[in-house]
């Protein structure tokens, strides 16, 4: 009888320890990992673009890994073209609100006023099961619009554009951007996101006015908190 009681105590203690261990792992693990991005792209490998998907709307923008002065990065050369690279991943913007990247512009496209050809843009996409309810933040680098211009895209009201760099930023110089997408979403849409981030993308397009743009992207970090 005493042995049965002892065995019961051992089982109970073991179960309690397992429960405490699992709870510790579940509670503490996110705290350790939250400063690490959900996904980081350094583009150091020649095949680094293979994990990205491309969609071509009109002609293919030439995206390739370029090595220059000891640095490797994505070079985008767009000539009367509109194709973008996207990477699907899921995370909550509220929990992991930061996205950062480096970019530089070597050549802005010549275009008419209000034409939506941009030398470089980075997308944060919040897909919805009803596709026309999907929302998107677009961070633009444009030489025509003033910095901090915020506007809906002419294509759809759920695509909101934010000019984060303008023509005053010197061309050919690497610039590091870091955005809090959770706060930016609130500023652009008036509410906090109710859907998870579903993809990030970047594009250099020149299809509307058939111009030429050359831009570079590097060190894209997605989904982390500080």
């Amino acid at each position: 009888m005493r042995n049965i009681k002892k065995a019961g105590q051992v089982v109970f203690l073991t179960m309690a320890l397992i429960l405490i261990g699992v709870s510790f792992v579940l509670c503490v693990r996110p705290a350790f990992s939250s400063s690490q991005p959900k996904k980081a792209f350094d583009f150091n490998d020649d095949n680094a673009l293979e994990e990205w998907n491309e969609h071509i709307l009109k002609n293919k923008v030439k995206y390739y890994i370029k090595k220059d002065q000891g640095e490797t990065f994505v070079q985008a050369e767009s000539k009367d073209a509109a194709s973008g690279l996207y990477y699907k991943l899921r995370f909550k913007a509220k929990t992991y609100p930061y996205v950062s990247w480096k970019w530089k512009i070597n050549q802005f496209p010549k275009k008419r006023k209000n034409v939506e050809d941009y030398a470089a843009r980075v997308y944060v996409i919040f897909p919805h099961i009803v596709f026309f309810k999907s929302k998107c933040i677009e961070y633009l680098w444009d030489d025509e619009l003033p910095k901090d211009t915020r506007k809906p895209s002419s294509m759809h009201k759920n695509i909101r554009q934010w000019v984060v760099r303008d023509g005053k930023t010197p061309a050919g110089k690497w610039i590091l951007e870091e955005r809090n997408i959770y706060k930016d979403y609130k500023q652009l849409f008036g509410t906090y996101p109710d859907k998870q981030v579903g993809a990030i993308a970047f594009m250099s397009d020149t299809d509307d006015d058939k111009g030429i743009a050359v831009a570079s992207y590097d060190e894209i970090r997605v989904g982390y908190k500080k």
Partner: peptide, 14 residues
């Protein structure tokens, strides 16, 4: 939904 999920870039979807 499946088509938009394959295209993904919002302007391209529209």
């Amino acid at each position: 939904y499946l088509l938009s999920d394959q295209i993904m870039i919002p302007e391209h979807v529209v």
